[in-house]
Write a protein that binds this DNA or RNA. Sequence first.
DNA 1: AGGCGGGTGTGAAGCGCTTCACTGCGCGGT
DNA 2: ACCGCGCAGTGAAGCGCTTCACACCCGCCT
Lengths: 226, 226
Amino acid sequence: MSYSQLLAQVSIFEQLEGEDLEQLSALLRTRRYAKGEVIFHQGDVGTALYVIRKGEVAIRLSSPDGKEVILALLDRGDFFGELALLDGEPRSTDAVAREETDLLSIQREDFRVFLNARPKVALGLLANLSRLVRHVTQLVHDTTFLDARARLVRVLLELARNQGQQGSEGVVIPQKLTQTELANLCGLTRESTNKWLRFYVREGLLAYEGGRITLVHPARLSREAE
Amino acid sequence: MSYSQLLAQVSIFEQLEGEDLEQLSALLRTRRYAKGEVIFHQGDVGTALYVIRKGEVAIRLSSPDGKEVILALLDRGDFFGELALLDGEPRSTDAVAREETDLLSIQREDFRVFLNARPKVALGLLANLSRLVRHVTQLVHDTTFLDARARLVRVLLELARNQGQQGSEGVVIPQKLTQTELANLCGLTRESTNKWLRFYVREGLLAYEGGRITLVHPARLSREAE
DNA sequence: AGGCGGGTGTGAAGCGCTTCACTGCGCGGT
DNA sequence: ACCGCGCAGTGAAGCGCTTCACACCCGCCT
């Protein structure tokens, strides 16, 4: 698939015409990242914005003693790394490839020129950043007001809402997630995540098999989230 | 002071020329809010962006059982409420006047038209939203990785960095803050905030009197923040 | 003066999450 | 086939923050 076709699916570029897309394509570099490879670290100087062509990327925070929180899971057609391009500050998060991943990148100056000439893209970016602010604000809300049980439920409902697929047993979350990853999405330890996950499996609200989670009864689960 | 003069001090409008500022001024409404008055609630439909002409506003999250977290303290020249204008979603936070406050407001459609015609404002907003994302991300970082002591220190250093004034005893945080408010800035209870605040007062790193906090030894305090 | 509300200062008890320790399983590598 | 390692599952213990319960002070209202 050509660059243009992919770019046309990226939210901030979807309003662009064929010609603009071609011009943008000319600015791109491609690189493959191995599973687990770090794309950038918190604190790095940010010189590029990335678009996912293939694979999955986790945006995460990490602490000196090895703890991690996952802020977002991204896949094909998503982009990231825009903040450092917009305000010039260092990377505020890590970005890691969760599997073999192909990324397109646009260098800072190229992007600025492109952006300045196309106000529509800026408007799209604004809507996108707004959603980002809301999402992170929601994380603050959940981590300060909710207990472990409710946090897990919220995260699962959110995953299901974003990428869930209706299956015969219920709504399936397509990504394979280890319990450690799930814990990092919730801001909990693996152990307590395991405890509540199993609790809801016993209750019949969830199914968990081979890293794949199914929301057997999403409506009842919603009621569990306060 | 005229509207234009104030607007020229607002970060996203500071690059505008006199004529643009006049046009913008014509779109404004003014309203006074009493101390403690709610400007909007989380979940409300957002129809306006606000600029603070006088007074102080807290942006906060609240939970059904009466807990609160303060995400930001804003004052003269700051603006808020832009998210709902950009993406059309309901308010993600509450906004409350901390004292008698005068606000200028711009209605959604007026702002959109103005914004569409002035790409520079959009670019300024992008930089501003980027900073906002970083700030909220930092909150997630702190609430998940740091203990109560370090959270308090971080919040105090942040307040001092943003609005601190050099005084004879050290860096003074100009706002009067009750310990409950400070606790809500840290995402802690009043009691544990009090405990650590007193601890640092005893240690000689802080002074606290009549709601006014002084960082007696900012450098040593920084070292306390992990 | 008296009373009351809001803010501060503090200790005791409780609770929920983490930490730690260990078992068992499945899969990939050699 | 075997080893090693990452992941899942689980219980016991510990710890840090919250909750609860008061005492005290000060300013304001009547």
